[in-house]
Amino acid sequence: MAELVAKQQTNSLSIIESVDIGAVQSTLAKINQFQVVVQNTLKANHDYGVIPGTQKPTLLKPGAEKIQMLLGVTSEYEVIERVQDYEKGFFAFTVRCIVYKNGMKITEGVGHCNTKEKKYINQDPYTLANTCLKMAKKRAQIDATLTLASLSEIFTQDIEDMQEFVQTEQVETMTAQDAAQIKLTFGKYKGKTLKEIYKTQPDYLEWLLKQDRTDPVIKKGIELMFEAVKQQAQQKQVQQQQPEQQTAQPEPQPDNIDPFDGEVIEISDDDLPFGM
């Protein structure tokens, strides 16, 4: 045992003896300078967030992207673990982010996300597989960036208690299909998805958009759904006009067409651009 300890100490001393102390001092000075640049460049509540009562702010995706751009590096991603249980509705992904500089690997980070996280309680897990994959990718990117730039003493990656930034994550990755499966947990439509409400009373969703107290994730979901419906209506209009253009000019259409005007009609699943 004593021989093993002595051997380890000898190896450690050998490593230290081989180090260029002057180069180490220069590197540490550059790290400190870069940390100052990062702190002066990144914007609060956009590139990083602050949890009241904590010592370190949380690095967010826009901030990680800026840091990687400043350092002139590129990232590649690999899914190293994937769970897709369609019977139980559980999906999980673990992603590795590998950072390269001029084709040489510099460092890597790991991120994980699954559909049992508390932010997904009121959503259909079967629509969240792609969302979780994006989340895992983003977390891996931030993890790699913190290591790459030696920023762990300045920033943290723990955002589970930051509700507003949890919402930001959801909004960034949300699609119209994701939005359609969000369930309300209040009011007369409690337990109904946004898609179900849209099919029976779309004006209620318009009312929710105007309320200051409506959850930002729900607002963004409604906006995505309405935009998807408008785009689909425009595409259908163009398709209907194309054959007519060969024989007659179509009547001019007003620029401010509102697809939600008029009598509410029953809408089938085939008529909705957000599927399922």
Rank of each mutant, 00 (worst) to 15 (best):
L4Q: 11
L4W: 03
T10G: 15
S12P: 00
L13C: 06
I16P: 00
G22F: 09
G22R: 11
V24G: 00
A29S: 15
F34H: 03
Q35T: 04
V38D: 05
T41H: 12
T41G: 02
T41C: 04
L42P: 03
D47S: 08
P52E: 12
G63H: 10
A64C: 06
E65D: 14
L71T: 05
L71Q: 15
S75R: 03
E78S: 11
V79S: 07
I80K: 10
T94L: 02
V95T: 13
C97V: 06
C97G: 04
Y100D: 01
Y100F: 15
N102D: 15
I106D: 01
E108G: 02
G109Q: 01
Q123I: 12
Q123E: 12
Y126M: 10
A136Y: 10
A140L: 10
Q141L: 14
S150M: 05
S150G: 05
E153N: 13
T156V: 12
T156A: 07
I159N: 09
E160Y: 15
E160I: 09
D161F: 10
Q163F: 04
T168S: 11
T175K: 10
D178W: 09
Q181C: 12
G191F: 06
G191K: 02
P216V: 12
K219G: 06
K219Q: 10
F226C: 00
A228C: 10
Q235M: 09
Q237A: 15
V238C: 00
E244N: 08
Q246A: 09
Q253F: 01
Q253S: 10
N256H: 12
F260E: 05
G262Y: 13
D271H: 02
M276W: 09
